[in-house]
Computed example of a mutant assay.
Amino acid sequence: MKFLLFFLSSTCLVRQAVQFEGFQCTSQHVQEAVTTISACAPREVVIQLPWPNNTDIQQMTPSHVIVQRCTGGCSPLNPSCLPSQTRMKKIPVIVAKCGIKLGICDKECSSIELEEHTACKCACALTADDCGEHHMFSKSECACKCTNLQDKRRCLESGKQWDETSCRCTCPNIHCSQPGEVMDISSCKCVEQTHIQTSRTLLNMSSEQLLSLEILIIIFLISTVTGK
């Protein structure tokens, strides 16, 4: 521990941010920072009780309770604080069923069961099943990584933005200020709404419909040339 504190104090420099001033780390500062780490463990948290399915209930006491839930910091490889052991806690409640007449309510006693965490662990909350079609689960990074890397490279080279969630190329956050203009995803430019509708109509057409359209265009062009 002494070696770690010495190493950190001699090499560490706090990252600067807008609301903080960076300064050279001291042994005391590093020790205080390390000892104030809130590790993953069950802690008391306030949660709102789920409302009963009975639609006749207008009031419930209590509405919020304190239970033990896993919370705290973990490592980058296992970033999520998850429960490893749980138990059910029964919460006594009083509910009020109010009739049509104002001020007349029938009180009933009941209970609601809540899950309480008794032990915690640091782990990756994601699995391969959580990843999409174009994703691959990376256990070392605890993340779903896009597999279509060539599409990502072409997207970034074209000046667009890459969405890691959908593994698709998207447009930068540009607001179209002119009335009647919308964002064209293919060009990432603001165009008139009619142009977008025409493009979508062509994209939704089948190959036979597109062939028929091409034939009509060719016949029109031929008739125009011969007419001259």
Rank of each mutant, 00 (worst) to 15 (best):
L210A: 12
G103R: 12
L49C: 01
I94A: 01
Q178S: 08
N204K: 10
R154N: 14
A128F: 09
N53H: 00
D130N: 06
V67N: 04
S80K: 13
Q48F: 04
D129K: 06
I218K: 15
H64K: 03
E44Y: 11
P83D: 04
S10A: 04
D129W: 14
H64P: 05
S166G: 03
F137S: 03
I104A: 08
P52L: 03
L203T: 14
L202W: 15
C124M: 01
C98Y: 05
H135L: 12
A39P: 05
Q48W: 00
I94P: 00
G180R: 06
C144T: 06
C124A: 07
I219C: 08
I217L: 15
L82G: 11
L126R: 05
Q16D: 08
V95M: 01
K228E: 13
K145I: 07
F20D: 09
L13I: 03
R154V: 13
I100D: 04
L210K: 15
C109K: 12
Q150T: 13
S186R: 07
Q59T: 11
I222C: 04
I217S: 15
T224I: 05
T226W: 11
V67G: 03
E44S: 01
C98T: 02
V191R: 09
L210Y: 13
P42T: 10
S75H: 13
H64L: 00
S10C: 07
N78D: 10
T35K: 12
T71R: 12
S199M: 11
F137M: 02
I215W: 11
H117D: 02
C142H: 02
S158W: 05
T61A: 01
Q150L: 08
P172W: 03
M205S: 06
Q59R: 11
S138P: 04
C167L: 12
T11N: 01
V191D: 06
I37P: 02
Q59K: 10
Q150C: 05
C176S: 08
C190R: 09
I185L: 15
Q59S: 09
L114G: 05
E208W: 14
T224C: 13
L13V: 08
S9M: 04
S166R: 03
P83N: 01
C171T: 00
K189S: 07
S84H: 00
H29G: 14
A125L: 04
E214A: 14
I91R: 00
K152P: 01
C146R: 11
M1Q: 07
V45Q: 11
G132L: 07
W51F: 05
Q150V: 10
S9E: 08
M60R: 05
P42R: 03
C98V: 01
Q68Y: 15
T26Y: 05
L5Q: 07
I94V: 10
P62I: 00
Q28T: 15
P179Y: 08
E181A: 07
S10R: 09
N53K: 02
S212T: 15
E21I: 10
R87Y: 12
L114V: 02
V34F: 10
L202S: 07
L156M: 05
E208N: 10
E44P: 00
K101I: 13
E21H: 08
R154C: 14
E208A: 14
L5S: 01
K152F: 09
Q197F: 12
